[in-house]
């Protein structure tokens, strides 16, 4: 094993990690405001990717992506308004079951609209064969796009939650919904906003990863499982932690392929997840106190 190949494995791991973490970020926002995991998050990713591919035959790539993100955000808002908004004090379990239902509904709707065909946006830079060579290690430019866009999303979210009024109101709802309500914050509007935001981020994620992973009506589930793992691993609710945890998991998986048969790759990631849940349920970067405030 020469050093060049070692770094090639690392780069492969970064590729996996970048895909996992950009999907994981979306989980955190709804969790932050509502305390639930939105199991339809993977479907937002799929719808974003699918819509962008469809629109790309009419518009240039940047506009197609922008429109796809907006359409998915509207879909997110509608879903929240139709299925969740009118519930009076729903329990966490009920909300989770509802989101699972929504995910099945969206998957079937996508099958009806787009059929079972596999699609993908073109590579943002270059083509499917182009790669940047850094000292003999090859990396697809699309991977850099994924990492770059993840970084932009994380920074933008941090700014949004720290410095804007809606962002602060969302955080207020997250830590104590009743107190926030007493202060005049509309909790139900904040939950709608959180669905809109995470649908948008999911859609953007779907657009950037689709040249690498392709998108199909059922591809949301697979992406969501890994995204969910990474979100928990990093500590739910923390976007920065999700990116770090994603890269760690991706690199571990990739290195596992080096020494073990590939078939064990997912065993590695699930073992890590279980270990984490037993030893430090608040996640690698989460604090115990913050976790204990949540219902779930």
């Amino acid at each position: 094993m020469n050093i060049e190949l070692f770094f090639q494995y690392i780069v492969a791991g970064i590729t996996y990690g970048a895909i996992y973490s950009i999907v994981a970020i979306g989980f955190n926002i709804i969790y932050n405001t509502t305390g639930i995991i939105n199991f339809a998050q993977g479907e937002f990713v799929m719808i974003g990717g699918m819509t962008a591919v469809t629109l790309h035959s009419f518009f240039p790539l940047p506009y197609a992506i922008l429109l796809a993100v907006i359409i998915t955000m509207i879909a997110g808002a509608l879903i929240e308004i139709i299925f969740i908004r009118w519930l009076v004090n729903p329990s966490v379990l009920r909300m989770i079951i509802i989101t699972i239902g929504i995910s099945i509904l969206l998957r079937e709707a996508a099958l009806y609209i787009w059929g079972e065909k596999v699609r993908g946006l073109p590579y943002f830079t270059g083509t499917s064969v182009s790669s940047l060579s850094i000292g003999g290690v090859h990396v697809s430019p699309q991977v850099l796009w994924v990492i770059g866009i993840s970084a932009v999303i994380v920074v933008a979210l941090n700014l949004f939650f720290s410095y804007t009024m809606p962002g602060r109101q969302m955080r207020a709802c997250a830590s104590n919904r009743d107190a926030a309500r007493l202060c005049g914050v509309s909790a139900s509007n904040m939950i709608t906003l959180s669905f809109v935001l995470s649908a948008g981020i999911g859609a953007l994620a779907g657009c950037v990863v689709s040249p690498i992973t392709y998108v199909q009506y059922e591809s949301g589930t697979g992406l969501a499982i890994k995204g969910f793992t990474v979100a928990i691993l990093g500590g739910l609710g923390n976007s920065m932690a999700a990116v770090a945890a994603g890269l760690i998991l991706g690199i571990l998986e990739s290195l596992s392929i080096w020494v073990m048969p590939t078939a064990y790759k997912d065993v590695i990631s699930i073992s890590i997840l279980l270990l984490m849940l037993f030893v430090k349920p608040s996640g690698l970067f989460g604090s115990k106190e913050a976790a204990s405030l949540k219902e779930f």
Binding site: A12, Y16, T213, S254, P261, T262, K265
Partner: peptide, 15 residues
């Protein structure tokens, strides 16, 4: 090597 049917990227496998 055997990979998962839902694999999203196979860079490490081809490496």
């Amino acid at each position: 090597e055997v990979y998962d049917k839902a694999a999203s990227d196979l860079t490490a496998e081809v490496t």
